[in-house]
Amino acid sequence: MNILEIQNLQVSVMNKPILRGLELRLGAGEIHAIMGPNGSGKSTLANILVGRGDYQITAGTIRYQGEDLIVRSPEERAMAGVFLAFQNPVEIPGVSNARLLKEAFNAHRRYGHLPEMDAMTFRTHLQERAKHLGLSDDWLLRPINVGFSGGEKKRNELLQMLVLEPNLAILDEIDSGLDIDALTDVANGINALRNNLRSMLLITHYPRLLEQVHPDKVHVLIGGKIVMTGGMDLAGRLEEQGYGWLSEVAA
């Protein structure tokens, strides 16, 4: 069964159509990349999947694990295992990473009818994962994203993903603004989370990350539709030739 199945999805923002009949199928354990020029609808797709307001779905269906996703609230989607690594994670002064993650983690546990994890056990659970990403313990006590560099914010998103262990992770430009070393760290983080049940959508402009992650499929999104699907060779061609040659296909 597909983890995610999107059919004929049409979405508008303030009556302006952004997605125009998008089709996508993502199998369990698969990683798909979505590439495309600015304004093609990549971030709209990410936001729609996690239930962000300010968008009108005018047609189409989204099924997650075989069930309608559109009717669910953002927090229900999160608890059911849909995770978004935000392109620009917001700062929350006064609330530590550890605090948010503990609340979120236990919300997930309650949703899955599992007992909540006590503070001490959770701390160990969290520290193990932070260590995996090379993050120190005092990082966990810093307020969420406050004063973080671009790279630190991205790592923080990955840490949250490691802790919450989603079934479907959408990574919205997780590679933007990263230097080569940070990019490798992020790629390692993604690879570490990879297993045959967890699916991921990587939204990106650049093939650099894909070279280290090796997605199963690469989709090109232009004008609110997927105009071409291929493998890593397609990503390579886009790097060399840009999107211009595809405009005929899109038209």
């Binding site: 953002p74 927090e75 999160a78 935000f86 929350i92 993650l101 609340e103």
Partner: peptide, 10 residues
């Protein structure tokens, strides 16, 4: 901020 927390399950 609210949406960020909701996306994490709150």
């Amino acid at each position: 901020q609210l949406f960020y927390c909701q996306q994490r399950g709150l």
